[in-house]
């Protein structure tokens, strides 16, 4: 079935190395673990971190789903899904409830995850302090001593300038009351889904060669102020295809006269609702 490739492309020693790092990561939720990232047959920024983690955790009986910005049918999602279908021969699906491993970029599915599922996130910038503290050594020391006042200063500045925290994606969270963590560029709307998730959540950054994890049922708190609590925001419209008022929406320009359509970014969720008879 694998035609000249080892199962799931990576050699067994590499997968073992990544699994060892993953075990460490699961033991310390939110703590970044360095790993020997390999060259993958796709460019950095297209999901090299996620694809290595998926390769390391994939088994022959797994069912794989890959989404990009919530959609199963975009280039990146299609090619990564086909990559593992060819190199591992695993079954693939677009249905969230049927998948055992879900590799994702920028979204968490709307359908609630369940016990036994594994989420694999593609992460461009694993260090949440990178934009505030240029020295990586100093950032590591801040993590070690849990000195996260600087991140709070960034939120203070946002509230002062805009009246609210202006971070709309990659909204920093505190994992298990200890480590400041980047949730990868998912919209802040998805942050509450990280909290107490029954699924195992793995995060891989290929270029930065770091991975981290949230074991199931981990407390994940989005940073905020007592008097300016975190709020998940979405476009106020309903989906133009399925009428959903609770899902995260993409704004799509549909002609050259400025007409716009708001549709669910999660294509599986939207299709499921349309099949059930909902309409926009």
């Amino acid at each position: 079935m694998t035609h000249g490739y080892n199962f799931a492309y990576l050699d067994e020693q590499t997968k073992r190395m990544i699994r060892r790092a993953l075990l460490k990561a699961v033991a310390i939720p939110g703590h970044q673990i360095p790993f020997g990232g390999r060259e993958m047959p796709l460019p950095y920024g297209w999901g090299t971190g996620g694809i290595q983690l998926t390769a390391a955790v994939l088994g022959a009986s797994d069912v794989l789903k890959v989404i990009d910005q919530g959609a199963d049918d975009t280039t990146n999602a299609v090619s990564i899904r086909r990559f593992f279908a060819r190199t591992a021969g695993v079954a693939t699906t677009t249905v969230t409830t049927q998948a055992t491993v879900i590799q994702t970029r920028h979204r968490i599915p709307e359908t609630p995850l369940r016990d036994g599922q594994i989420m694999v996130y593609q992460v461009p910038l694993p260090e949440p302090l990178a934009k505030l503290e240029p020295s990586r050594a100093e950032a590591a020391r801040m993590h070690a001593l849990a000195e996260y006042g600087l991140m709070q200063v960034k939120l203070y500045e946002d509230v002062t300038r805009y009246g609210h925290v202006s971070i709309s994606y990659d909204y920093p969270v505190l994992a298990n009351h200890r480590y400041l963590m980047s949730p990868s560029p998912i919209p802040a709307f998805d942050n509450p889904k990280l909290h107490m998730s029954p699924a195992l959540q793995l995060f891989g950054a290929g270029r930065e060669k770091r991975l981290y994890a949230l074991p199931p049922w981990t407390e994940v708190r989005s940073l905020d102020f007592d008097d300016h609590p975190f709020r998940a925001t979405r476009a106020p419209q309903v989906c133009g295809l399925c009428g959903a008022a609770d899902s995260y929406l993409d704004e799509v320009v549909i002609d050259d006269r400025g007409s716009r359509l708001f549709v669910c970014s999660d294509t599986d969720y939207c299709a499921g609702r349309q099949e059930a008879g909902h309409g926009g």
Partner: peptide, 9 residues
């Protein structure tokens, strides 16, 4: 904030 103050006002 470094000492843990979390009330903006």
């Amino acid at each position: 904030m470094a000492q843990g103050a979390r009330h903006y006002g």
